[in-house]
């Protein structure tokens, strides 16, 4: 096996060169190549962190704005509701006042009409009594009974009162 041919002087020199090459590679990587990669990775991590922070700040800001908007909307709605309620109460009051006025006028008209009806009825009843009195006297005269006019009128009045009931 060539790997165990320790008599070969190239075995030793290969190892010496191995240490030289490995050492040089270690030196180049440690002092130049790897710190550059580390810088790039750190920069990227810092950038990502900063962007995340900015995004979180923006989110908080947005949430605050949203809360403000909600509060403003709620206030506006409450105000509008109050306005609507006031307007409705106002309109109701006006309407009921109007209705009352109309009712009062109507009641007055009804009362007036009733008074007129009553007067007309009384007048009619008065006329009827006169007619009844004169009719009763005429009938009594035809029957040949003489009675004082006052008595006849009283009797007719009595009968009329009973009949009116």
């Amino acid at each position: 096996m060539p790997q165990l041919d320790f008599a070969n002087p190239l075995m030793t020199t290969t190892l010496l060169w191995l240490f030289l090459i490995f050492g040089a590679l270690y030196f180049v990587l440690k002092s130049y190549a790897l710190p550059r990669v580390a810088t790039v990775l750190e920069n990227r991590a810092a950038r990502i962190r900063a962007d995340l922070d900015a995004a979180q700040a923006a989110q908080r800001e947005g949430e605050a704005a949203l809360a403000e908007l909600r509060a403003a909307t709620a206030a506006a709605r409450a105000e509008a509701q109050a306005t609507v309620a006031a307007a409705m109460a106002d309109a109701q009051a006006k309407a009921s006042a109007q209705a009352e006025a109309i009712n009062a006028r109507l009641a007055a008209q009804v009362d007036e009409a009733e008074a007129r009806v009553r007067a007309a009825r009384d007048a009619a009843m008065g006329a009827l009594r006169e007619v009844a009195g004169s009719t009763a006297q005429a009938m009594l005269a035809r029957l040949g009974v003489s009675a004082p006019a006052r008595t006849v009128t009283a009797a007719v009045d009595r009968a009329a009162k009973q009949g009116a009931r």
Partner: peptide, 28 residues
């Protein structure tokens, strides 16, 4: 100087590694 074919490939490996880490990262 007793530089062998084995050492030659060690140098290749080293050059490729440095190339990857330096040329690959050149734009950062």
């Amino acid at each position: 100087v007793g530089f062998t074919n084995s050492n030659l490939y060690m140098v290749f490996a080293g050059v490729l590694i440095v190339a990857l880490m330096v040329y690959g990262m050149r734009e950062a």
